[in-house]
Design a protein around this nucleic acid. Structure first.
Lengths: 183, 183
DNA sequence: CGATTCATGTAACTTGTTACATGATTAG
DNA sequence: CTAATCATGTAACAAGTTACATGAATCG
């Protein structure tokens, strides 16, 4: 069984409890989305593959709707534990706002501060959205619960970046360096 | 001309000065790599497309080696300015180390702190690598130069995450909550 | 002169998104 | 009854990586 990135998210989600593909997608969108997304186009085919490989199996469907709830098999639980014990490999960012900061010099000396302002705005909004999720999750949440920890990371991270952008934009707006002032 | 993410990196790089595909790759690897990567498989075909669309053109090749140095045309410069003036859209992360933190509860109560330790280590190493690049770039660098600003962002960001992981791992190792202590 | 680096390029593959199709169930 | 939501799925596409092929120039 070839393992791919998406398979680990699915195994992890089923490690939290039995779920259908639809529920996995909802859960991802409300939690790992900001650092690891997944779409139906990945989830459903991957569920099938994992079931064929014997890592997960269809649980008895509950409720009136036709749906397939999956759960981990012992093999799947083992695979999840193994993956968790392995050092992480994928560490990627694609941050267009930072790319614009990087190249902003081309649009003149004031453009950098503006690019930083825009980046800041994005992170403020994201932090706010995450705080809304946190407020929902807060009731009875154990602060040491790992999923909650990841959420707090998202908030802290976005707050930090917003602050950094603010400070840096201010520095960019300060009077130019001695060399330039002398000129 | 359909614009795609890679085309903007190339236009931006050529905005810094005429470059060959090979040089673009080197430059990316030494700068935007940690927030926006690019491979030869993207760069060379895209250079051809941009040249056909008239946004860039082959400059007179300098030096003994056979190579093609590209530069922006006025149209390309305009396209770059336009892109810079537009709000950023792509904002993605794929952070496997955080995913492991998120799911770590499955591997027992101690696993979260360990996952945080590992994540911390990664960011310490990255910060160190970026500092090495900074040390190289430092001679005569204008602190308000935008490319330098992005580099400092990378360092600050990785330092922050490393610290956050340290604090959070410590909190995870503290005695459990009242509820559990009472039990 | 042999190894390394410079330099360009492509084919096969992996990964992921978007948009659509389908239909059942539930809420108002 | 009809609109929204639940639920599963796929096809077409977009994006990006890896690995390889090729050959010239340079360095020791």
């Amino acid at each position: 069984m070839e393992s791919n990135p998406t398979s680990h998210v699915i195994l992890g989600m089923l490690g939290l409890g039995p779920m259908s593909g639809y529920e996995i997608k909802q859960f991802v969108d409300g939690s790992t989305r900001f650092f690891w997304a997944a779409s139906y186009g990945q989830i459903y085919p991957e569920l099938r593959r994992l079931a064929e490989a014997g890592l997960i199996e269809a649980d008895a469907p509950q409720g009136g709707r036709r749906r397939t709830v999956y759960k981990l098999t012992p093999t799947g639980a083992e695979a999840l534990r193994e993956w968790l014990a392995t050092p992480a490999q994928t560490q990627e960012m694609r941050d267009e706002s930072l790319l614009k900061v990087f190249f902003s010099g081309f649009a003149g000396p004031d453009a950098t501060a503006l690019a930083l302002d825009r980046k800041r705005e994005y992170h403020l909004e994201t932090a706010e959205r995450l705080r809304a999720i946190e407020a929902d999750a807060k009731q009875g949440a154990d602060p040491q619960d790992a999923t909650y920890t990841a959420l707090r990371f998202g908030i802290a991270f976005n707050d930090f970046v917003a602050d950094w952008c603010e400070r840096e934009a201010a520095a960019q707006r300060e009077p130019r360096s001695e060399k330039e002032r002398a000129a």
